[in-house]
């Protein structure tokens, strides 16, 4: 190695190191570039906006008359790949005397759910949707077993 190339190696190395330091130095002095947010403060400040399609948990919307859209057809239960949905049905006597299958409890095992959205895809009556809630941590695992249909709720009229 000649002396000239030795010296030029030293200088080009130092230059490459300094250009890296320039970048970190830039970010050190420019605090506006900081991208991290403070959780949970960002929820209060409104910086944490979850998109409407966010898959937090399966929910069953009920309207003001405590009516839902679930007919108890069990499509969601069949489509669930890991068995986190269990639907218990009952026979309900209709006003015209006929017996009809209806939903008794819609059991949702949040601890097993992978939020794959297949149940929502499968539902023929749009009875279930994905909710935005994402803070699911609890101290007792049993609390993760949820019943989605509210007590005394009814099937919305006209939903088949």
């Amino acid at each position: 190695m000649g002396l000239g190339s030795y010296i030029s190696t030293v200088f080009s190395s130092v230059k490459s190191l300094l250009s890296g330091m320039k970048l970190t130095g830039y970010y050190f002095t420019h605090h506006k570039e900081i991208v991290t947010q403070q959780y949970p403060e960002n929820k209060r400040e409104g910086a944490l906006i979850l998109p409407e399609r966010f898959r937090g948990e399966v929910t069953m919307p009920h309207d003001e008359n405590n009516e839902h859209r679930c007919t108890g057809c069990q499509s969601c239960e069949l489509s669930c790949p890991n068995g986190s949905i269990k639907i218990i049905t009952k026979q309900e006597v209709q006003p015209d005397g006929k017996k009809k299958k209806a939903i008794d409890t819609w059991v949702y095992h949040l601890d097993m759910c992978t939020f794959c959205n297949l149940c929502i895809e499968a539902c023929p009556t749009q009875a279930i949707v994905m909710g935005q809630e994402f803070e699911h941590s609890v101290f007792d695992k049993k609390k993760l077993k949820k019943i989605l249909n509210k007590p005394d709720s009814k099937l919305k009229a006209g939903v088949e």
Binding site: L50, P51, R53, F54, R55, T114, F115, C116, N117, L118, E121, M130
Partner: peptide, 24 residues
């Protein structure tokens, strides 16, 4: 990804024959 697919990492946005939903 989150806005369109609903999930950040394990999107599962594809169904046989196409996509689960249209883009956002």
């Amino acid at each position: 990804m989150e806005e369109t697919c609903g999930a950040r990492l394990t999107q599962n946005f594809i169904v046989p024959g196409g996509l689960m939903a249209d883009i956002h």
